[in-house]
Design a protein around this nucleic acid. Structure first.
Lengths: 320, 320
DNA sequence: GCAAGCAACGTGAACGTTCACGTACCCCGG
DNA sequence: CCGGGGTACGTGAACGTTCACGTTGCTTGC
């Protein structure tokens, strides 16, 4: 410790001065503090962490901060973590920063727990994190050691019911092409449609508004009679609205549109988006709560309480 | 180190096994690795950091992740930092998590450099960070030790010119009520208007779409003849579009609207938003570049190169 | 048969901080 | 004058890792 030598005192005295501890005269305290400031001394967070034990830092793995869903979610995670005095290390694995697994590789050595949209790789993530808590959101079939997933069957049912109630018969579902052959949502929608005895058209596009816009134009070119469109998420639904407008279809008169997620964007587009909404802040809060309980040992990885299932709510606005 | 005892080897051997270093038989390596996995052993990041020296972590202080501008910016910061092998600790000081200064207080002990929208408190931030680099975005009058700011006078000029070219005469500016008596943007707009010999109406609202929507209804109630509206940012501009629609004003026919920032949201609203756009990824990239150069000593805090001024570009879409 | 060489492993020391002590010194009361 | 009790400081030790060396023991070559 350089400051100790410069001030002619012991390291312990410097510690006392920097942390405002008792057992030091105010004269030396100020002298040491000023000297520290002059020398640009900053206590090493590593040494501090080593001796003081865990200051918790939470890893947050996000597929794409550019998609407004994720900041909405991240916002509540950060808020909730901040309240607990944790800090949050964010990794965005979009834009060529690799896969979710790369994000976990980067985060694992740096954090005490992990929360994230990791898609298929959740078990690898648990392996890399060892005994440390991992909360996977929107995990695919099967249980995660800890996780939150969504009851898409229920949500899809709500949406299809709505379309039917409106008398819509030619329904299409626009899926994301991100995960493997079909997304979790995709299979749920297909199942719900089959259950309701409906035949629906399924198309996929990249998870962005422009891609959805283009894809919708394609759908309409092939299937002109579509009068209901369910979309993978609200961002793509916003693009879909544009695509319908491009093709001269009026929403909701010619074609109803229902999105998923319930992000604030839905209220800003025209017509305002009917959507299967989640309580986004509740999702973040639940994720951090899970981590907290896993850390404290209040609940155990793999147990029933470590897996939450949240339901969507159909928020009716203008588009359907 | 528990694993060392359990495996009956020395700590050094464990180190060699965990880090795939030479000088160890593959038999012992695997035995140690498996034992480590069973015991749930995770190397302490603190001890590692202490002995190996700095793994850089970058603090990112964000006023409100809920406002789509900030994730757009954060996304490029995270991407750029990830490329350098840094990790990013995010703090959102919206939603009652205090002020920017609170965020800095939380981040300062944990990071090697700081980037953020800190508003007025940038000098306090530098004090808390000592010699470590601080890059302040959108700092108010006066220079920051390191920072990026925007030439709002230039941008405001572009917008007002556009309104004039369209023959619009009754211009209003909707400001944010976040910072003190008037925002940096507010004074720039006022100055640009005065320079152009224009008289403009200035109103303020909270920095959110619903607040802007309400405020715009208020403006129209008082000043019905408004035919041009410049707005603090794109999010508020999106709300303003809704407000104009509520009041039965057609955009751009009855009233033109120009936003600021150039976030992707602008292309999803109807009509699509004409805006003073920034290259958002360039902003993030520049911020991280600055930090990098400050860390390496290539440029010095307070020097001319440590302060960047970026200009807006008027992107014409439908709203003006 | 003996040293050289190499592979496999162990042994302090160090990183920078805090914790639990120990030690001067001063002030007072008796 | 002596001891008790405070205040202001200093002194190992410890946290868990890695680094730069040592130290075995076995092979190899002549």
């Amino acid at each position: 410790m350089d400051v100790a030598a410069a001030a002619g005192v012991s390291r312990q005295t410097v510690t006392r001065a920097m942390n405002d501890m008792p057992g030091i005269s105010s004269a030396t305290r100020e002298r040491v503090q000023q000297l520290a400031a002059e020398l640009g001394y900053t206590p090493s967070r590593f040494a501090k962490g080593l001796v003081q034990g865990a200051r918790i830092s939470l890893g947050l793995a996000i597929p794409d901060l550019t998609n407004p869903y994720f900041p909405a979610f991240a916002s509540s995670v950060v808020e909730e973590a901040t309240q607990r005095g944790w800090n949050v290390v964010v990794d965005d694995f979009g834009h060529g920063s690799g896969s979710g697994l790369d994000a976990v590789t980067r985060l694992a050595p740096q954090v005490d727990a992990l929360v994230g949209y990791l898609g298929e790789r959740s078990s690898d993530a648990q392996t890399m994190m060892g005994r440390r808590p991992v909360v996977v959101l929107d995990y695919p079939a099967g249980r995660a050691a800890g996780g939150i997933c969504f009851d898409y069957s229920y949500g899809a049912g709500l949406a299809l019911e709505r379309f039917q109630a409106e008398g819509r018969r030619r329904i299409a579902y626009l899926d994301s092409d991100q995960e493997g052959p079909a997304t979790t949502r995709g299979v749920a929608v297909a199942a719900a449609a089959a259950g309701a005895g409906m035949e629906i058209i399924v198309r996929r596009s990249a998870d962005s508004a422009p891609a959805a816009r283009d894809e919708v134009r394609g759908i309409l070119a092939e299937h002109g009679g579509i009068d209901g469109l369910l979309v993978f998420n609200d961002l793509m639904a916003a693009g879909a609205l544009k695509g319908l407008h491009d093709a001269g279809r009026a929403v909701p008169e010619d074609c109803g549109v229902i999105g998923m997620d319930g992000i604030p964007l839905g209220e800003l587009v025209t017509p305002e988006l009917t959507t299967l909404a989640l309580d986004l802040r509740a999702v973040g809060r639940s994720a951090v709560d899970l981590v907290d309980n896993l850390l404290s040992g209040a609940i155990h990885p793999g147990s029933a309480e470590a897996n939450l299932v949240l339901k969507h709510q159909l928020v009716l606005r203008q588009s359907a």
